[in-house]
């Protein structure tokens, strides 16, 4: 299958995990050790997600009959 640029974790999964981490840190009384661990993990997700989101070139591709995908130009109005 064609997959997104070798990023093992998708943006969706990453952002959802980040949300969950922040939720937990803001709503629960967690131990300092765990807070530090979550902080580290969260910052990692932020860094990766930021890299994806900073991408500014929308890619438009066409699915061909054979199942392969081809880049295509779409002119805007």
């Amino acid at each position: 299958m064609i997959e997104g640029d070798g990023n093992k974790v998708g943006l969706e999964e990453r952002l959802e995990r980040l949300e969950a981490i922040i939720d937990r840190m803001e709503s629960e009384d967690i131990a300092l050790d765990e807070a530090l661990q979550l902080f580290e993990e969260g910052v990692g997700h932020v860094r990766e997600a930021e890299q994806v989101l900073a991408e500014t070139e929308l890619r438009v591709e066409e699915l061909l009959a054979g199942g392969e995908v081809l880049e295509r130009e779409i002119e805007e109005e």
Partner: peptide, 14 residues
């Protein structure tokens, strides 16, 4: 996403 590290560090401080 960019605001997340601040929230995370607040969590650690708390």
């Amino acid at each position: 996403v960019r605001a997340a590290p601040l929230r995370l560090s607040r969590g650690v401080r708390r």
